[in-house]
Amino acid sequence: MSIIELLSKIRGEQTASITMQQKTLQVLLSFSFGVLLGFISKYSDTIPSNGLLGYILGIISDITTRLGIWVLLATIIAVWSNNPRIGAIKVFAFFVGMLLMYYIYSMWLFGFFPTYYFIHWGVIALASPIAAYIVWFSRGNGWIAAFCAAMPIGLLVSTGYPFFYTFAITHGFEILFSVILFIILPTNQKQRLRIFTSTLFIMFIIRNSNILSYLFGGL
């Protein structure tokens, strides 16, 4: 059995083909969505936390400075694509748009370009198509698909776990995001059980290693 045949058994690509114009539009929309969120993310950092609007923007700022929201959005963009290739391209375009807007806006506000952070987040953005390609299969069937779904869910639960003893709202949102993915990714109840089991394994690996510190330490 070839690799293509194996992958098609995990999750088959949509039979309805899309034109190059449609693919281009989808990528541009993903890029524009990233630009919008990059602007919102940086703008929310600059508003004093006074009044209701300031409080809301403060929460947005806290959420967008953590991994959770980006894992959720990238996963959704990837899995609801026609195939893993276009999903990978759309996720990459999303992060490029977000990073460019965020750091260009930062340069405009403060008069300097934070090269260190831009390069490090840029490297992560370069790796995002690989993760998106893998995660696309999370709405398939079988243990491989379950493992693909468990990776973003397990990451979110691991980063949001402190909510259960700190009750910090940012951690609470990460738990919420993990629940959302656990609801929308499985295609049936049997697959949900596989994802749940795989998520426990992913959580064990993350919480008993320094992988997150290695990947995102100092950012």
Rank of each mutant, 00 (worst) to 15 (best):
Y102E: 05
Q189M: 14
M1E: 02
K9L: 09
M203R: 07
M107R: 06
Q21L: 13
K23T: 05
F196R: 10
D45T: 14
Y55Q: 14
S81I: 01
V123Y: 06
S61A: 14
K23M: 13
E174I: 00
Q191C: 08
N188I: 04
I202V: 15
G97M: 07
W70T: 05
I130T: 10
G142P: 08
I195Y: 03
L99R: 05
M151S: 10
G140N: 05
A125F: 03
G154R: 11
P84G: 06
S2N: 15
I56C: 02
A168V: 06
F118C: 08
I89S: 02
S44Q: 10
A78T: 06
Q191R: 13
G54N: 10
R207P: 05
I205Y: 13
G160Q: 03
I4N: 14
F216C: 00
I124G: 07
G87W: 00
G160A: 03
L25M: 08
I119S: 11
L73M: 13
L215Y: 03
V91Q: 06
A145P: 04
A149F: 07
I10W: 11
L72Y: 01
E13P: 02
A145K: 04
I63K: 11
P186F: 01
Y102Q: 07
L181C: 07
F33S: 12
T187M: 12
S8C: 11
F33N: 03
V96A: 08
V27G: 02
S41K: 10
S8L: 13
Y103L: 11
A131K: 08
A168Q: 12
